[in-house]
Design a protein around this nucleic acid. Sequence first.
DNA 1: GATGAATGAGAGTTCATTCAT
DNA 2: CATGAATGAACTCTCATTCAT
Lengths: 212, 212, 212, 212
Amino acid sequence: MLNGTELKLFADANVLNAMTDKQVKILLAAIEVFAEKGYANASTKEIATKAGVSEGNIFSKFKNKRGLLNAIIEPVINSIFPAVLTEFKTDQLPLQFVTLHAFVDSLVRDRIQFLKDNAAVLKIFVSEVLYNETVRKELLTKFPPLYWHNINKNLNQLKDNHLIVNWENLEILKIIWSVVGGVIIGYLLFNQPLEQREITHIIDALVKSLAR
Amino acid sequence: MLNGTELKLFADANVLNAMTDKQVKILLAAIEVFAEKGYANASTKEIATKAGVSEGNIFSKFKNKRGLLNAIIEPVINSIFPAVLTEFKTDQLPLQFVTLHAFVDSLVRDRIQFLKDNAAVLKIFVSEVLYNETVRKELLTKFPPLYWHNINKNLNQLKDNHLIVNWENLEILKIIWSVVGGVIIGYLLFNQPLEQREITHIIDALVKSLAR
Amino acid sequence: MLNGTELKLFADANVLNAMTDKQVKILLAAIEVFAEKGYANASTKEIATKAGVSEGNIFSKFKNKRGLLNAIIEPVINSIFPAVLTEFKTDQLPLQFVTLHAFVDSLVRDRIQFLKDNAAVLKIFVSEVLYNETVRKELLTKFPPLYWHNINKNLNQLKDNHLIVNWENLEILKIIWSVVGGVIIGYLLFNQPLEQREITHIIDALVKSLAR
Amino acid sequence: MLNGTELKLFADANVLNAMTDKQVKILLAAIEVFAEKGYANASTKEIATKAGVSEGNIFSKFKNKRGLLNAIIEPVINSIFPAVLTEFKTDQLPLQFVTLHAFVDSLVRDRIQFLKDNAAVLKIFVSEVLYNETVRKELLTKFPPLYWHNINKNLNQLKDNHLIVNWENLEILKIIWSVVGGVIIGYLLFNQPLEQREITHIIDALVKSLAR
DNA sequence: GATGAATGAGAGTTCATTCAT
DNA sequence: CATGAATGAACTCTCATTCAT
């Protein structure tokens, strides 16, 4: 399931710097095994074998099995909200998106790319969120107010310009997130391909559905 | 997480008939525990305790812990495609939906009701599908050709009447299913409420996105 | 493995009289299952099913699983020493065997017939004796002094007449019993056939080996 | 029941090399417990306790309770046919036994010694063969053609020299094996002592019974 | 009596974790 | 540090036995 780009997530999060070669090997092996069998059904022995490392090694590097999972999940939590909308000191900046299409496109396209780049890790993440209240709460903790602020600003401006339906902003976002969520599930569960043409379709559909 | 309507699914599937009171208690307790902790982390002992029953009892009716899971999942697989579109001997009948809105509404609304009625069971089902190739394949096996046939017929007629975009039928369905899938995930992961107003919004948005 | 004559053992032991039809059915089913899988691996459920009887029935008829085994083994213990040598009030009677051949023949032939008639039961008995001190001791308890007395008398007379080797009587008997034991094991383990011709061979060989 | 020489069988089979001290202890404890209670009635917990080892340890080397049994039985299967008759490249060699007595003596004496050296293991083996078709078949698989070839050659030469009865070779062997089998059973079931004097008697008797 | 659902002790087995080497 | 043998708690599952019906 690993496609070679998984590590990017960890590189971006600057977690690789602090890791030895062995730690990285263990991390990658764990991603592979967790994604294939699920966390609970993966044995540290199998991970160690796949990483070409002794079992004890896992525990000196990651404290315990849960620590290994956390090392995988943490970067996801920190990257799940797109940087594109969180990196501005917004008030001083001009609004970013002047058309609905540009807005939706920027919200959807890079998240779908993120999905494709990190499918295995996201699969692990999704099933963890399903059953782990703690992770769920941490996710909300990490929810960036800046993200929310920025989005609201854009949505309000689109509304002012009569470019978008006049629903509540949260309502609008739920629609968008639902579509992205649905695409993720379709991809993870049924390996539904995500060609550029289809992504464009999805974005077009969303734009149409939200246009005034 | 159980909301009292879970049993309907099993009653409809006629699986309750062959069960004693205690076995029904086991089934309900299992749904609750599986949905709370996940299948792999649920112990038969906890299920038995919650059901107020001895542990051995689980195995006399359900054979396995796995058998207990199957007893929960099977009815989902058999009910996941809406009856509304599969119960006609189609060729003799007039087409059902004359407007795009009626079509989308019928596809989406009862599936979302199904979700609300069976959230715990669906959560169990979703995480099972994530990791279980067999279940995934069984799902495809149970895919009712009649469902596909009916949908195509309706879509084609909508196209003939210029009421829907001229994309491939499969493409159109993917959009609809993605939205429904996203709603399911949002509901299961974050307990996002699903008021009638929101459901109406979702349907409206979908109709707009697919209208010619 | 049952060959239809198994019941003779029980009929001879007068245990069938006191049994209901169901008890007999259970007994026969138990013999079959015990002989196939061994006592420890046989489940009362399988026995009940094979007997066409409810499981609880076994326990009202035989107290417990062990009681069922005892009901099978007891008649063997009581029949394992041949009646032919134990039923005489010997002192008043003339000695029975005037030739070595007649003596050996009478000792061996009917025991081998006994084996053939009761193979399943004997198999159960043998593995029980292997591991059960109690049964082993009971066997010695039931050892009929009359049997020993009679044999000694015959052996002594054969010695007086210079018809048999001049070993100790116990030594001679061990040889005979060893051969019979070996035949039993060969039959039980490897289904070695026991035609009349072979039985004759064995007896002839024994006679030759013991002749003066 | 262990007499201290049991390990020789395993040392010869080179199975001890790959074992730690604890695993050897497990093997010995298992032999003891299996021989005392039978495989099915022996619990891994008791074996572990007797070996002074944690229960889990059994499963890391032997995989299964069954694997533990196999580790005990396998060397028996491979040693049950005497090396003395299988180690020659026969065709180039002169025949081995020129008298019937030498032939019988070589067949019987070392097998009885083998029995005395490995009584516990053989007891386990015998009861396994009683109920396990697979082991029975494996035994036949391991039957060394060289053994059979060698024996036939010797028997034929003895016949040519008029030193043995003119029965079929298989028939002759059955007699010998029966006696050995009977001795084994007597020893295992009733702890009948096997002094050299008695072994000599048995061999003498066999020789007499087979002499022309 | 007859039934078989229910029981629960105890079985074999797994596996994260420790720690002597 | 690195190893993997050893641990033992916790797991799933079996089955003789009981007992309400």
